[in-house]
Design a protein around this nucleic acid. Structure first.
Ligand SMILES: Nc1ccn([C@H]2C[C@H](O)[C@@H](COP(=O)(O)OP(=O)(O)OP(=O)(O)O)O2)c(=O)n1
Ligand SMILES: [Mg+2]
Ligand SMILES: [Mg+2]
Length: 784
DNA sequence: ATCCTCCCCTAC
DNA sequence: TAAGGTAGGGGAGGAT
């Protein structure tokens, strides 16, 4: 079954509407709502200030101004009262100039970067200062130390979560005005996706400006990818997954890392009269090779909802979902919203609502649905706290996603029982994050994973060896990891719905039907067997960027701009990971010949044909210009109408780690290149200083990128510069040599490379010194 | 056999 | 309106 057929089964027919006026009204309404919200915050601030004036006796927090970031214990409100009563200031918005201290117990990675050189302190700085009635030195309470989070997890003193603070209920979306009628007529089984006709979406993305009232960037504009990614839950999910894998690797590699959670368990459950012997001997005795491993799988309950419900406890018994839009614009068809539900709580699940469901369908199942907006920073913070909490028990962890991980608990079982272990860890997670989670345990990854399903919500479950067959037989084949929509539909055709039924199939038959590996894996999984090991640090095999939303272009030039945008994004990712790649794959979504130009989902990709083609590079690269050029070559070989383009992905494979190259390599490479690529190479000698520079003539002439140099005065410092470097990291060095060598520098411009043989052009992007940032000008002799 | 390219499938 | 990303497993079929 092709992807296209599948989409047809769930994309809906949609009545085409002209409704610009309504959109404008909605925009105004929304603006009005936002304005009211801001006014409310201003009022709140003013009242804080007046309280400050009236109760001006205490000077405890004089000259202190705090900003509270994210979830804290004690709560936002309590901290605010302490500040105000202590004569300090409490800022509702972060401002580097006004705020003296940021208060947080955990930070999203993005915030860690933002606050890198700021005073970020634990809430206990405030509470301790209040307790002792004197301002404590903040240094003892820093959350960020040497670029990593330490303090919070080196002590177990933090109070348990009390979880009863309401912050600002005005942020809740309007409630419960969904229509009561039930004229929902099978929106989700239509076979034609859309009606042809009006071209609202096209008009919105006509070249040039920000289209229409909604300020959506057109796909050829510079900020388009960043804006889309900023709003894409799926992008965040993927980004966090890689960041959490990195976090696990960092923790595992950190010799300073302490197992404070584990120590606490040892203290609590093992005889504390002989404390000196406990930890070390246990470590050894637990390495009992004959015992097989036991795994725990931990997964947060309705993650996105739980995180935002901390601020809205009054909604916890009502059906709640997190999504971008409720689609309740006056004049829209009821139950027609195509906005996806990222997560729904268990009350909503009672009504049949599911993660990933369209809002329209969910509202038809549950008209009372409460829709809350995303809080991406909140999810990131909770994720990292979850991982650090688990890592305080053991570092035998495999990251699965932002709300989910596998843990090898074999050695921890010498401290306590399954139940004790899970209770302790879950309680710890809950008190640190304010969110519930569930845990499953079993003799392999499959059993642990399935056990979590039985455990949910807010529970735990252990599958003991004698129960395995019974336990797994009861499950639907659908529940098996790796068995999704297509596979279970294929099995359904064979009258197989449960694992018990699947067990009747012979290994040979399964291999024949599904292929060697898949067949064998199905054969084992339905019997509760699973060979997979925990794989904490698997090297990355690909790096990619995809955008399959919001693409409505009209001409080839716009396509080039979009490719440039996406190529820049993959390049950034490669450099971030310090990887170089030898193969580029371009993936496109192209509107199917018979598909309407307007998709079912606003600005969605609609019914598409997928195309992909890869191109191997002679030399590994991370350069955006090269990647873009290669992709455009592939694109030109296909003759696709720009207006039919609906999605673009660039995937980089055949990866290798950047290695700092030696001075000798560097000079050889560079001189080889210059010697071969340039007709007039007689000026080049090993002593002649050379820099390779991209000079983009369409930009103003000052913007140059330095790709490489063999400057003798730089080479002692080259190990620090080459391979991968950012201007921020190397600007000192750069400044020194640019000034010193001014006027002596030979320069090549990009056109030099474009006229070079292809392999030289690629070589130029080889793992050499590369300065990312523009606005960097050097003056020099031009090479004749 | 084993590898490669172009897909498809799955999970969060 | 809506934000349909991304990495890894693996199969089919051709090249070696
Ligand atoms: N189709 C999906 C599935 C998940 N997610 C996001 C939101 C979820 O909260 C988070 C974690 O996914 P889970 O599968 O763990 O689902 P939940 O945590 O929401 O619920 P559960 O209690 O079943 O784990 O990933 C999403 O955006 N879209
Ligand atoms: Mg979950
Ligand atoms: Mg999960």
């Amino acid at each position: 079954m092709s992807g296209r057929d599948i989409e047809r089964n769930y994309e809906t027919e949609r009545e085409v509407k002209t409704r610009r006026k309504r959109e404008q009204e909605e925009w105004a309404r929304h603006g009005g709502y936002m304005n009211a919200k801001i006014q409310k915050l201003i009022n709140k601030y003013d009242s804080d200030k007046s309280r400050e004036n009236h109760e001006s006796q205490s000077k405890l927090f004089e000259n202190v101004a705090i900003f509270v970031n994210g979830y804290t214990e004690p709560s936002f409100d309590v901290l605010r009262n302490y500040m105000i009563e202590g004569g300090g200031r409490f800022e509702h918005y972060y401002s580097a100039t006004r705020v003296t201290h940021i208060v947080a117990t955990s930070l999203a990675l993005s915030k860690q970067k933002l606050f890198a050189d700021k005073k970020v302190v634990l809430p206990s700085w405030i509470t301790d200062s209040v307790k002792k009635n004197s301002l404590q030195p903040y240094e003892k309470y820093l959350l960020l130390k040497r670029n990593k989070i330490t303090n919070f997890f080196t002590s177990r003193e933090s109070a348990p979560w009390t979880g009863s603070d309401v912050i600002d209920p005005s942020e809740i979306n309007d409630v419960a005005d969904a229509p009561q009628s039930s004229t929902f007529k099978e929106l989700y089984s239509s076979t034609t996706e859309d009606l042809p006709g009006t071209t609202i979406q096209e008009e919105q993305s006509k070249k040039g400006g920000k289209s229409t009232a909604l300020n959506m960037l057109s796909a050829d504009q510079p900020g388009f990818v960043a804006e889309f990614y900023g709003n894409s839950r799926l992008h965040h999910l993927s980004e966090w997954r890689t960041q959490l894998k990195d976090l696990v690797n960092e923790i595992r590699a950190d010799p300073e890392h302490r197992l404070t959670g584990r120590d606490h368990l040892v203290h609590k459950y093992l005889d504390s009269s002989k404390p000196s012997s406990s930890s070390l001997t246990l470590e050894l005795s637990s390495h009992n090779k004959s015992t097989s491993s036991v795994y725990m799988h931990i997964d947060m309950d309705c993650f996105f909802v739980s995180v935002v419900l901390r601020q809205h406890p009054e909604l916890k018994d009502r059906p709640v979902v997190v999504a971008h839009s409720k689609g309740d614009v006056p004049g829209n068809q009821p139950y027609s919203s195509m906005s996806q539900i990222a997560s729904c709580n268990y009350v909503a699940r009672q009504a049949g609502v599911k993660n990933g469901m369209m809002m329209g369908k969910a509202l038809s199942l549950c008209p009372d649905l409460q829709v809350l907006p995303y809080d991406f920073d909140g999810y990131s913070e909770v994720s990292r706290t979850l991982y650090r909490t688990v890592a305080s028990y053991t570092t035998e962890i495999e990251a699965v996603s932002c709300d989910e991980l596998y843990v090898d608990i074999t050695s921890l079982l010498s401290i306590g029982t399954y139940d004790q272990l899970a209770q302790e860890m879950r309680q710890d997670i809950r008190s640190r994050t304010g969110c519930p989670c569930s845990a499953g345990m079993g003799g392999n990854l499959l059993l642990a994973r399935l056990a979590t399903r039985s455990a949910k919500p807010d529970g735990q479950y252990y599958v003991s060896p004698q129960d395995v067959l019974d336990f797994v037989s009861k499950h639907q084949v659908n529940d098996l990891p790796g068995v999704g929509r297509v596979t279970s539909r294929l099995l359904e055709k064979q009258k197989v719905e449960t694992c018990a039924q699947l067990q009747a199939f012979s290994l040979a038959k399964l291999k024949d039907k599904f292929g060697a590996k898949t067949g064998e894996s199905l054969y084992k999984l339905c019997r509760g067997q699973d060979d997979r090991q925990l794989r904490p640090d698997q090297p990355r095999q690909s790096v990619s960027c995809d955008v399959n939303y919001g693409i409505r272009l009209t001409d080839a030039h716009q396509v080039e701009l979009l490719f440039e945008n996406i190529a820049a994004e993959v390049s950034k990712k490669l450099r971030n990971a310090r990887l170089l790649s030898k193969q580029v794959t371009l993936k496109l979504k192209v509107r199917s010949a018979d598909a309407p130009t307007q998709s079912a989902k606003f600005m969605g990709h609609g019914i598409c044909d997928n195309m992909s083609k890869s191109s191997s590079l002679k030399h590994p690269t991370d350069g955006a210009v090269l990647i873009k050029t290669v992709c455009l070559n592939i694109w030109r070989g296909w003759n696709i109408l720009p207006s039919d383009l609906r999605g673009v992905g660039i995937q980089m494979t055949k990866l290798q780690q950047v290695q700092a190259c030696t001075r000798r390599d560097k000079q050889t490479d560079l001189l080889n290149f210059v010697g071969k690529g340039k007709t007039n190479a007689t000026d080049i000698s090993p002593t002649k200083p050379v820099a390779i520079v991209i000079s983009d003539d369409e930009d103003d002439g000052d913007k140059k990128q330095i790709l490489d140099t063999n400057l003798p005065s730089v080479t002692p410092e080259v190990p620090a510069l080459c391979g991968y470097s950012r201007l921020e990291d190397v600007s000192d060095v750069l400044n020194r040599w640019v000034v010193a060598e001014r006027g002596r520098l030979a320069m090549f411009t990009l056109s030099t490379f474009l006229n070079s043989p292809v392999d030289l052009y690629q070589k130029e992007f080889n793992n050499l010194f590369y300065v990312e940032k523009k606005n960097y000008c050097i003056s020099s002799d031009k090479l004749k």
